[in-house]
Design a protein around this nucleic acid. Structure first.
Lengths: 342, 342
DNA sequence: GAAACTTAGGAAATCGTTTGCCTCAAGCTA
DNA sequence: TAGCTTGAGGCAAACGATTTCCTAAGTTTC
C-alpha cells in the first residue's frame, strides 16, 4: 500500500503556481478570462501535486453531488445484477457515481439506507429487486427523484421501468405456433409469484386468440430444475398429449429437457421447448440449447438510469414504462441443420 | 414521485428552535453543555423539518467521508457478487457507504474510476474481480488504503484476501480418498487460468502424498458443461479406468455427471464426483446433487472489508491472506441412505 | 456583598471550492 | 492627453456543518 501523501488542495496548487485560489479554480475549470500561459502553469502545478478536486466541497457549493443511490429491496441476485450494471454504465457516462445499498428484504435496513442516501445528498435513487411485482414506494414525498427498475411502485405517479412480461410470453407462444406446434403445455413457478401468473395468463390469452388452449392446466410449482423434471412426470402419467412446453424460467425448462431426454422424447423434434430469462449459463448448457425469452435487463437498467437523469434535470417520466422482451431462438425449437455433438 | 421539499439545513433547525447554529449542532450531536430542555427542543425542530445532516459538509470539516470504493476489475459476475455483498454488509455495519465501480476489463475505465474515487475522497478502496490470479496494483502510492479481495496484487506489500484454493483442492482429494476412491481423474478449466493450474497442482500433490497419482493427465479445457461432457468422452474412449472425478468447477462437474449418466455409469456408486465453487444453482440441480468446494466468498468479502476498516484506522495488514475453503458434501460422493458428514 | 466558579449558549473560524464583483494596468480613440 | 474599453486576476462571500473560544448570567463561598 503506497503511503499517504496527503491530498493536495487547490490552495496548494494556487501557491505553487503563484496565483490566487480563485484564479486556480478558474484555470482548472476553464472559467473566467485568463492568459493561456497562466492556465497551463496552474494545470502543471496541479499535475505536479497530484491534485484531485474535492468533489464534496464542490457539491457544497453547487448543491449537486453527481451521485445516485441504488437500493436493491431484496438481496442482490441474478436479476438485479444486470439492471445494476446497465444503470452503473449509463450513469458513469454522465459522470455520476453510484452508491450500492443492499436491502436484504429487511424494511428496517431499507429505511436506514434511504436515510443514509438522503444524508449523502444523492441526486436521485434507483430501486430494484428480484421480483417484478409492484411494491409500496420506499418512502413518501422524497426530496429527490426515484425510479423503480424491474420492480414497480404501487403509486402510479412513480416512475417504474419494467419488462413487458406479457409481451414476452406472447412472443414465446407465437414462435411455437409459427413452427407448427398446437398442443402446448405450460410449466412455471409458484402461483403466488407475480411473474408466473402474468406470463401464464398471457400465454393462455395468446393461444385463445389462435383458437387454441393449453394442453392441460398450467403447472405451477417452483423456479427449479427439479420441478421441471417432476412436471414432465406429471404430464406423462397424466396422459397429456403435447408437442411443446413453454416454461416460466430457463431452470424449469432445463429440468423439462433433461426429463424428456431421460424418457426418450426428442427435443425439438417431438417436443419443442421455450424458456424464460435467457440466462446464458442455463440456456446454452441445456441439451439442446434453449430458445428463451430475453428481458434485456441491462438495457432496462440503462433506461431507468436515463429516466432518472432526466428527472434530476427536471423532466420526470411518471408512470409505468414497459420495455419489450425478445426471443432468442436456439436449437430447442429448431431442427439443427448439422447434428449437435455430445 | 412525492415532490421536492428542499433539504432543510441546520440553520433552519436552529431558527425554528430559536438557538444558534452552533448550539443546534451540539444539541444534535450530544456535544457541549446544554440544558436537556434545549436539546429536545432542537431535536423536535429537526424532526419537524425532516432534517438530515449533510454528510458532505460534515466530511469537509472532519476529513473523513465514511465512504469506500469497490472496483471490480473485470465485469461484475458470479464471483464478485458474493464478495461485494459481504463487503457491503460489513461496511454498512460500520456506517460506511459503498461506491460501486465496474471496471469491465478496461484499464482506461479502471483508472477513471480510481481518479473519481479519490476525487470523492473515499476512505479506502476494495478491488475485486473474477480471477484469483495476482494482478498489478491499481495505482502506485495511493493516498488511501487498498485491499484486494478474491484477486490479489503482485505487490507483496499490498493487502490481499484470497481463498486458499490449494487447500480446497486438497480437501476434495482427501474426501475422495476417505470414501475409498483411488483412481481419480481431473477435469478442469483452461491451463492458462491460474485457478485451474493451482487446483490441479494441489490435487496431484495431495495424491502423491498418499502414494497415488491421477488416473491419466489432468484434462484442461473450458469452464463449461460442454467441456465436462466432452472430457468424459475422452476418458472413456481413452480407456482410462477411474472411480472418481475431481472437477475444476461445478459447471464442469455437472457436464461430467450428465455424460456419465448418459452412458450408464452410476454416480456415486461407480464414479464419485466433486466440483468446485459450490454454486447452489449448479450443485443442487445436478443429478445427483454435487459435492463441492465452497470458497466462502461472502465471508471473504466481509474479511476484506474488515481489514480495510482496520487499515483506515491505522492498522494495516499487508500481505496475502489466504482463507480456508470447505467441502460441502452432497449425494455425488455419498451413497444415499448412508450419509457421511465431514 | 464581592470574588470565584459553573453553566448555557452565542460568535466566528474552519474545511475546500466556486463565482460574482472589483481593481488595476495596458491599449485605444478622439 | 484625457477618457474608454478590455483583459487578467485578486478578494471575499457563499455552501453546511463542527468546534474552539468567549461571554453573560447564575451560584457559591467567605
Amino acid at each position: 500500500m503506497g503511503k499517504l501523501e496527503r491530498h493536495a488542495t487547490i490552495a496548494d496548487v494556487a501557491a505553487l503556481a503563484g496565483v490566487s485560489v480563485g484564479t486556480a479554480s478558474k484555470a482548472l475549470n476553464g472559467r473566467g478570462s485568463l492568459r493561456e500561459e497562466t492556465r497551463t502553469r496552474v494545470r502543471e502545478a496541479a499535475r505536479q501535486l497530484n491534485f484531485e478536486v474535492n468533489t464534496g466541497a464542490r457539491s457544497l457549493h453547487s448543491g449537486r453531488t453527481y451521485t445516485v443511490g441504488m437500493i436493491t429491496t431484496d438481496t442482490i441476485g441474478r436479476f438485479s445484477i444486470p439492471v445494476l450494471m446497465g444503470a452503473e454504465d449509463a450513469l458513469g457516462a454522465g459522470q455520476m457515481s453510484v452508491f450500492l445499498c443492499d436491502g436484504r428484504d429487511d424494511p428496517i435496513r431499507e429505511q436506514y439506507h434511504v436515510k443514509t442516501l438522503l444524508s449523502r445528498r444523492v441526486d436521485g435513487i434507483i430501486v430494484t429487486g428480484r421480483r417484478t411485482e409492484a411494491r409500496a414506494p420506499i418512502a413518501p414525498r422524497l426530496p429527490v427523484p426515484v425510479v423503480y427498475a424491474f420492480i414497480s411502485s404501487t403509486d402510479p405517479a412513480d416512475c417504474s421501468v419494467v419488462p413487458d412480461e406479457e409481451g414476452g410470453a406472447r412472443k414465446a407462444v407465437e414462435h411455437l405456433l409459427a413452427i407448427g406446434r398446437t398442443r402446448m403445455a405450460h410449466v412455471t413457478g409458484p402461483e403466488h409469484h407475480h411473474s408466473a401468473r402474468v406470463r401464464s395468463a398471457a400465454a393462455v390469452e395468446r393461444l385463445t386468440e389462435a383458437g387454441l388452449s393449453l394442453a392441460g392446466p398450467p403447472l405451477f410449482g417452483a423456479w427449479s430444475e427439479a420441478w421441471g423434471r417432476q412436471a414432465v412426470g406429471m404430464l406423462l402419467t397424466g396422459g397429456t398429449s403435447f408437442d411443446a412446453v413453454f416454461c416460466g424460467s430457463d431452470q424449469i425448462a432445463r429440468g423439462v429437457a433433461d426429463a424428456l431426454r431421460a424418457v426418450g422424447r426428442r427435443v425439438p423434434e417431438e417436443v419443442a421447448l421455450v424458456g424464460y430469462d435467457n440466462w446464458d449459463v442455463m440456456a446454452e448448457a441445456c441439451q439442446p440449447p434453449l430458445t428463451s425469452v430475453d428481458m434485456n435487463l441491462e438495457g432496462l437498467g440503462r433506461a431507468a438510469a436515463e429516466m432518472l437523469l432526466a428527472a434530476i434535470n427536471g423532466t420526470p417520466s411518471p408512470g409505468r414504462h414497459a420495455r419489450p422482451c425478445h426471443l432468442v431462438v436456439r436449437e430447442s425449437t429448431t431442427v439443427p441443420l448439422v447434428p449437435v455433438d455430445s
